[in-house]
């Protein structure tokens, strides 16, 4: 994990579907832009946000970037901690071994702890 000048950590919370609105892309852009400027960023996919982690995405025909592929580049931005709401993932039958990027699957109590552990929260 990178260390920032201030040493503060930001958790970006992504709760909306990847292709339903421009929110999701704004969230990833914000996370990657902050990481590009050496801020310490973690990401939590919560609720419908877990749909970012669907395998086999192919968005070419709708003319937007492939979010699955984009997620795979997060380690190159030193965004190494990706967290996933396990209950929502289970609802959509998204398995730990099948996601475009490896994530840590968390239960409700662990999510609550994660939220109180970060210095800044950014919800999308």
């Amino acid at each position: 994990m990178s260390v920032t000048v201030t040493g503060k950590k930001t958790l970006v919370v992504i709760r909306h579907t990847p292709y339903g609105s421009s929110l999701a892309r704004a969230a990833l852009d914000a996370a990657m832009a902050m990481a590009a400027f050496e801020q310490a960023i973690d990401i939590l996919f919560l609720g419908d946000g877990v749909l970012h982690l669907m395998p086999d995405q192919d968005s070419a025909a709708i003319g937007v970037n492939n979010v699955g592929k984009l997620l795979a580049s997060l380690p190159l931005y030193d965004i190494d901690s990706v967290y996933v709401d396990a209950a929502s993932a289970a609802k959509y039958r998204i398995a730990t071994y099948d996601t475009p990027i490896a994530g840590q699957f968390l239960d409700q109590a662990q999510i609550q702890q994660l939220l109180s552990r970060n210095d800044h929260l950014l919800g999308f």
Partner: peptide, 15 residues
């Protein structure tokens, strides 16, 4: 081709 995006400097250096 791999990530469907152009890299920022930080990602390019690492890649």
């Amino acid at each position: 081709a791999e990530f469907d995006s152009s890299p920022a400097m930080r990602a390019l250096v690492k890649y």
